[in-house]
Computed example of a mutant assay.
Amino acid sequence: MNKLIQGLSICFLLVSTLACGQNKDYLITISTRHGEIKAILFDDTPKHKDNFISLAKAGRFDSTQFHRVIQNFMVQGGDVFTKEELPAEKWPTIPAEILPNRFHRKGMIAAARQGNNINPTRASNGSQFYIVQGRTYEELELTTDFPALQKAVLQYVQLESQRPLKEEYNRLYAEQKLDSLMTLLLSKRDEIAKSLNLTLTKNYTPEQIEAYAKMGGTPHLDREYTVFGEVIAGLDVVEKIAAEPTTREVPNSPVLMQVKVERISKKKITQQYGYRYPEVK
């Protein structure tokens, strides 16, 4: 009987330990001279999450910089391997974890990588990450396949019936009134698609359309880079970094970072920062 009770007690402790572990998460703190950025990393991108946490725990992110900054686009940093003087050809990579439910709305954290021409598998850089700033998009602009539309327009304006459109297109282009030109093309999108029997749209979920309209982001990066985390406090710090004066996208005054991780309860993260974890089904 005593052995049975002891066995049940051990099982209870194991179950309790596992349950406690599942109810905790890593809170990421990125400290800069502009303030702190708080973030969480996603469980459904485990390779990227584990890699980031490992680098942070070892202090390897500390004294790296946000070395590439583009206003209304993103801020990029965490170049551990250059700091450690590791030759570029030896930089480790992480297999892509690109998921349809993870998209580039403002505040998302994603992994930098080399281009498709030399990196067709879209493997991520082993340390560098970027935080999305971006801008807002109207639904018509967001859902338009611009390369396809541009190609279709050049075909459409050759029709004799579209001579006025061709003249207006050429005038706006010659005057470099690109915003007006884009407005013109968007207004003609559905007409051109119907006339030439083409599809000139891209599919976005209602959630994505709402997020890009209200919060903004960089939708053209979707399905191309691994999104593996999210800023839950300190977006104002991201804005300040993005506003740094730069030379060739490098801040004139270095924006150094220190990164720490702490494991705390998900309940506390929700209470303090308002982040809602997805319900387990």
Rank of each mutant, 00 (worst) to 15 (best):
E207C: 06
I192Y: 03
A193M: 03
K166G: 06
Y173T: 04
S161D: 04
M182F: 14
P206E: 15
Y173F: 15
R189C: 09
I192W: 04
A174P: 00
S187T: 01
A211D: 14
Y169S: 01
Y169T: 00
Q176T: 02
L186S: 12
E167H: 09
D179A: 07
M215Q: 15
A211Q: 12
T205P: 08
Y212D: 11
K188M: 04
T201P: 00
T218L: 10
D190A: 11
D179W: 12
G217S: 09
L196A: 08
K194L: 03
Q176I: 01
I209T: 11
Y212Q: 11
K188R: 08
K214D: 10
E191Y: 13
L198T: 02
K214G: 04
E167K: 10
K177Y: 13
K194D: 03
G216L: 05
P164Y: 15
K194S: 05
K177Q: 13
E210I: 00
R189I: 07
E160Q: 03
L165H: 07
Y204T: 05
K194G: 00
Y212H: 15
A174V: 01
A213P: 00
T201S: 09
G217N: 06
L196D: 05
E207K: 11
S161Y: 12
E175G: 02
L198M: 04
N197G: 06
K166W: 12
L181C: 03
L185M: 14
L181E: 05
L186T: 13
L165F: 14
D190W: 15
S187N: 06
R189K: 12
L178A: 04
G216V: 05
G217W: 14
L200G: 08
M182T: 12
D190I: 07
T199W: 09
E191P: 00
E191T: 08
L184D: 09
N203W: 13
L198S: 03
E167T: 09
Y173K: 11
N170K: 09
M215R: 13
Q162A: 06
Q208V: 05
Y204E: 07
S187G: 03
L198D: 03
Y169V: 02
K188T: 01
E167G: 03
R189W: 15
S187A: 07
L185R: 08
A193E: 04
Y169P: 00
E167N: 10
Q162Y: 13
D190Y: 15
L198H: 04
R163L: 11
T201A: 07
S195L: 02
P206I: 12
K194P: 00
G216W: 13
T218N: 10
L184T: 06
Q176G: 01
T205D: 12
D190Q: 12
T199H: 07
K177I: 05
E207V: 10
P206L: 14
I192A: 07
Q176C: 01
K194M: 01
R189G: 08
R189E: 11
S161N: 04
S195A: 07
A193T: 02
G217I: 03
